[in-house]
Write a protein that binds this DNA or RNA. Structure first.
Lengths: 265, 265
DNA sequence: CAGTGGTCTAGACCACTGG
DNA sequence: CAGTGGTCTAGACCACTGC
């Protein structure tokens, strides 16, 4: 029998589906993709919180009237996108930036020598946190209108006492209403973890544009390097569900004792 | 029945396998992983050349006495690692750096405005190509002994007439015996494509370490920027089968009109 | 021991490609 | 039209976790 979730917008085409209307076909979508979309919707709706287990594959198969293998393939893709984490014998869990053994999931800066644990945790200092109106480029990056309220944060990360990262970040005002410098300062753990628990914003993926620039006087003071020192400029846009941009971050990295590491496939 | 490829070193443990010897278990390996390893061996042995089709899933299933689904899962992983490319209705093909619509698979430098095609193909100039003995750091990167013969190449890539990338690369002397400046200069297409066709060396993955540095006088002249200009320093090690390093490449990128793009998941 | 994810099968059917 | 990859199923069994 042809499988089809009748209540779905994009159903599986069994046989007599083609030749519909005129323009570009019905966009055939496999069952497991539809299941994936449904699970994604539940994740986004917060049906299961970060760190919690989602229903077992058998349960989900029963719920969607589908075989375990189909649910499995849907979850496989979610796991590949790091939206969920599989743990054999235990279950499948909603991924979280908190309580993860990798502290900074999106930070690719590593010490030149030794493993990342050897230098211990980073020291963090919040320099500033203020509300303002989005400039043209910030608005474009965050898919807002120029003049919309945004939050700007400036902070410094130090490793082994050496200031290494100076970053400014901009957040849309609406979702992050109530975020203050004090709240940021008192927080332990990754900033993205706080975003999850306090504001319900999950960062799922990000894009970075990297350049080499020269430190200006102010940046030099903050990073304790002479003006003109080459620094890595890392502009990141982080996205949540539906590819909605939720953070613009401009970082300056000292690369005299650290390097940005990337793997190519 | 328990499936097992008796002629394989690491067979599937059916039931009575545990408690063997003493130290760390028998390292259970699923069937599809064993199949993957077998296909990998054939790829490495050159049983199918880059660009050619490998046998169909059904054929491989028959050859290995395994179900199609198991072969499929093995090929899935090979495709994920970009060792192989699937094309529905046609077959599965050995991946190649040549004739691929993406010209430079490992190059992440993009123009700030417009798509990569807008500036047309890069102009390439070979500055140097000589044999020498590996220094300590080159030897370490290429898993050679200091003093082993290596090939050093220096070239410049220009986009729209502007010199943008200056790179030195080191290749182990043995596999690349016969490579000359003339051969490099007359070549069209990606360098990795030439490595494949002429020397049978397939680059499968790479790691990059990125830093910001200041151009020295000589580099400034070659890239047509003032000495002291911040440049992106990109050190790449490219690997072939068995994670064997086959190339060390040190690139300097101008980032005034281009940027290094990275996607984080 | 029950429950979970992980593997494997045999068979069916679908979508896509090319002759 | 035959051949290929792609999807889906129902059921079996294995490996791992925790009670």
């Amino acid at each position: 029998m042809a499988h089809m979730l009748s209540f779905m917008p994009a159903a599986v085409g069994s046989d007599a589906d083609g030749a519909a209307a005129g323009a570009q076909g019905p966009a055939f979508s496999p069952l497991y993709q539809q299941i994936k979309a449904l699970i994604l919707k539940s994740l986004q709706a917060g049906e299961w919180k970060p760190g919690e287990a989602i229903p077992s594959e058998m349960d989900l198969a029963a719920r969607f009237r589908v075989s375990q293998g189909t649910v499995r393939k849907a979850i496989d893709e979610l796991a590949a996108g790091k939206l969920v984490v599989r743990r054999q014998g235990k279950g499948t869990f909603v991924a979280t930036h908190a309580e993860h053994h990798v502290q900074y999931r999106f930070l690719k800066l590593l010490p030149d020598a030794g493993d990342p644990t050897s230098e211990g945790p980073a020291q963090r200092a919040i320099l500033d946190c203020k509300r303002l109106r989005a400039s043209a480029d910030v608005a474009r990056a965050l898919a807002l209108r120029p003049g919309d309220p945004v939050l700007q944060v400036r902070r410094i990360l130090s490793f082994a006492g050496t200031p290494t990262i100076l970053e400014d970040l901009w957040l849309p005002g609406q979702p992050f209403k109530g975020l203050t410098a004090a709240r940021l300062a008192e927080d332990q753990g990754p900033m993205y973890a706080l975003f999850e628990t306090e504001f319900g914003v999950r960062m799922l993926r990000a894009e970075e544009k990297i350049r080499a620039i020269a430190a200006d006087a102010a940046q030099g003071v903050l990073l304790q390097v002479p003006a003109g020192t080459p620094l890595l400029s890392v502009e990141r846009i982080a996205y949540t569900y539906n590819d909605a941009p939720m953070e613009l971050r401009r970082g300056l990295y000292r690369t005299d004792t650290h390097h940005y590491r990337n793997e190519l496939n």
